[in-house]
Amino acid sequence: MAVVITPKADFLVVEFEQDLSIFAVNELFESLKSVPQADADKVILDLTAVSEFDSAGLQLLLWLQHSAPAKSFTLSHGDNPTVLRVLNLYNLNPLAA
């Protein structure tokens, strides 16, 4: 599994593993399809473990947010340099507060 989705009390934790790149997006997409339909209002995207992160991976996160406009997304990156670098480059700060 490239992603672990854990429902908590009133939120959902989406924990990505190493690969969040073009090579993994198809598989990740299949797993994430259920997220917009989930009950929780809050979604925590945990990128702490990600070691491969490219624009395709980022686009997938953007899509997730786009497909669940009613939910609030929080990004947890654990100061992962790979992730921070991409976010800084694109001038993106954590997707939604």
Partner: peptide, 21 residues
């Protein structure tokens, strides 16, 4: 300066391997 990334996603049939950026 003013880097702004957006995505123009299709209404349906999002293909994660296609680029919409």
């Amino acid at each position: 300066t003013d880097v702004h990334l957006s995505a123009e996603f299709p209404a349906e049939h999002f293909d994660p391997e296609s680029c919409y950026l």
